[in-house]
Amino acid sequence: MASGAASGVDGAVVVVFDFDRTIIDWDSDDWVITKLGAADAFQRLRPTMRWNALMDRMMAELHAGGKTAEDIRECLQSAPLDAHVVSAIKAAAALGCDLKVVSDANTFFIETVLAHHGVLGCFSEITTNPARVDADGRLRISPFHDPTAAPHGCRLCPENMCKGKIIESIQATAGAKQQHFVYIGDGKGDYCPSLKLGEGDYVMPKENYPLWKLICKNKQLLKAEVHPWNSGEELEKTLLKLVSKMITPPAQASQFDYSKCEMSNPASTEVGHHQALRVPH
Rank of each mutant, 00 (worst) to 15 (best):
M59L: 08
V15Y: 10
V86M: 02
N265G: 05
Q77F: 00
M55C: 00
K213I: 13
S244W: 00
D82H: 10
A5M: 13
A79F: 01
S169W: 11
L62E: 02
E159D: 15
K163A: 05
T48C: 03
L195N: 07
Y209T: 13
L114N: 05
P210S: 10
I110V: 15
L240V: 08
V133R: 04
V15A: 03
C122K: 08
D10Q: 12
S169H: 13
V182D: 06
A53Y: 04
F109T: 07
K35P: 00
N265A: 13
V15E: 07
F42A: 01
A131F: 05
A135I: 06
T127G: 00
K163P: 08
L221P: 00
G11Q: 03
R278C: 00
Y202Q: 00
W26R: 05
I126S: 03
A172G: 08
L114W: 08
K163F: 04
S259A: 12
G118D: 06
D30G: 00
P130S: 09
D134M: 09
D25G: 13
V101A: 01
I72G: 05
N129I: 09
P130D: 10
D186L: 12
D71R: 04
D18R: 03
I24Q: 08
I247C: 02
E234F: 04
V203C: 11
D136F: 04
P228G: 05
C75K: 02
A64P: 01
F123N: 03
Q178H: 09
S3E: 14
I126P: 06
D25W: 05
L95R: 12
N265I: 02
P210Y: 08
N160E: 14
A149T: 12
D257H: 11
P80V: 07
A83S: 15
G4P: 03
G153P: 12
Y183P: 03
T173D: 11
W51D: 03
H116S: 14
A94M: 08
L81E: 01
F181M: 01
Y258N: 07
S254M: 07
A251C: 09
R46Q: 13
K241S: 13
T107H: 04
V13D: 10
Q275R: 11
N208V: 02
S244K: 09
L81S: 00
V271Q: 12
S268F: 07
T112L: 06
C97G: 04
L36P: 09
C122N: 05
L99D: 03
D29N: 13
G198R: 11
F19N: 08
E70A: 14
S87I: 00
D134V: 09
Q252V: 11
P147Y: 03
A79R: 07
T107G: 01
A88W: 12
G198Y: 10
F42M: 09
C192T: 11
K213H: 04
I141A: 03
F42L: 14
V279Y: 09
A172E: 11
R44C: 01
K223R: 15
S124H: 13
V15C: 07
H273S: 12
F42W: 15
N160Q: 13
S231I: 06
